[in-house]
């Protein structure tokens, strides 16, 4: 696309300058917490006057934070493990059904990503309360899976649209039941999209705060929930240390997956 624009020094300087500005705008708010987290002060101050690792010590020394970290990682993994297979099956039916039925199902399936999170959380709270599931890990998992399925589907639907369905029919005619045809023919060929969908589902859960605030409690509190609560109750640089670690985890996961995909 860029070839269509005049290629001279001035336009190139402008392009690079503009790109740098956008990068800075996107990255600075995230990066500003990094120096904050290494502050020696009891207050959030920028730039810090002295540096230390004391807030990291506080974080790793806190049983509450460690429990939340564990909960969030387990929840993210479980969410991906449940949402991606369900999403894949849903996308296969949408792909096979075609026509109005497919459009309707797709619409219903994608609503959780369109409805405001707070409404979804309130609704979920009442449904789960009736089942006595509020405060349980399972309850939060249900909420996160509901949110992660549309995310997985957005990745998987276009991949399935490009997939040659005759291959599945060929596999079926050669003696494969549905499970073997999906596992042996579709999954291996869609592995890159499935990996992306898994990552997105995992990050959706890891990032989610509203449902967690409503549904999770006590030992089942997630990291984002605890971060919100601690911001409300006390402001000290522990939260900056956690944010930095959190960003590092997400960046690491995305990098690993992206690099694996390239190789």
């Amino acid at each position: 696309m860029l070839e269509a624009y005049p290629d001279n020094r001035l336009s190139r300087i402008f392009l690079w300058g503009f790109s740098a500005l956008v990068m800075a705008f996107l990255m600075l708010p995230t990066l500003v917490v990094v120096p904050l987290s290494f502050s020696a002060s009891n207050l959030l101050e920028f730039p810090p006057r002295a540096y230390s690792l004391r807030w990291y010590e506080t974080f790793f020394g806190s049983a509450t934070w460690m429990a939340a970290l564990r909960t969030s990682l387990i929840l993210g993994t479980l969410t991906a493990m449940v949402a991606v297979p369900l999403g894949l099956l849903a996308c296969i039916s949408i792909n096979r059904l075609g026509g109005k039925a497919a459009v309707t199902i797709q619409g219903v399936l994608l609503t959780p990503s369109i409805v405001p999170g707070i409404l979804l959380a309130i609704g979920l709270f009442f449904v789960l309360a009736a089942q006595r599931l509020v405060g349980t890990l399972f309850g939060v998992l249900v909420g996160h899976v509901v949110l992660a399925i549309p995310v997985a589907c957005i990745v998987l639907l276009p991949a399935l649209a490009r997939f040659d369905w005759n291959q599945v029919q060929a596999a079926r005619s050669l003696g494969a039941n549905w499970a073997r045809a999906i596992g042996g023919i579709i999954v291996p060929q869609l592995h890159i999209s499935l990996l992306s969908a898994t990552l997105m589902a995992f990050l959706t859960s890891l990032d989610e705060s509203v449902i967690s605030i409503f549904i999770s409690s006590g030992r089942n509190s997630t990291m984002p929930k605890l971060m919100f609560l601690s911001l409300r109750d006390q402001i000290d640089p522990t939260i900056a240390a956690i944010s930095t670690l959190w960003t590092a985890i997400v960046v690491a996961v995305v990098l690993i997956v992206t690099l694996r995909r390239k190789s």
Partner: peptide, 20 residues
């Protein structure tokens, strides 16, 4: 009867070979 239980060999127009 399900397609996988028919024991019928099929050659498809686009061959439908498994590229993986």
């Amino acid at each position: 009867l399900a397609p996988n239980k028919r024991d019928i060999g099929i050659v498809f127009q686009n061959y439908a070979l498994f590229p993986h």
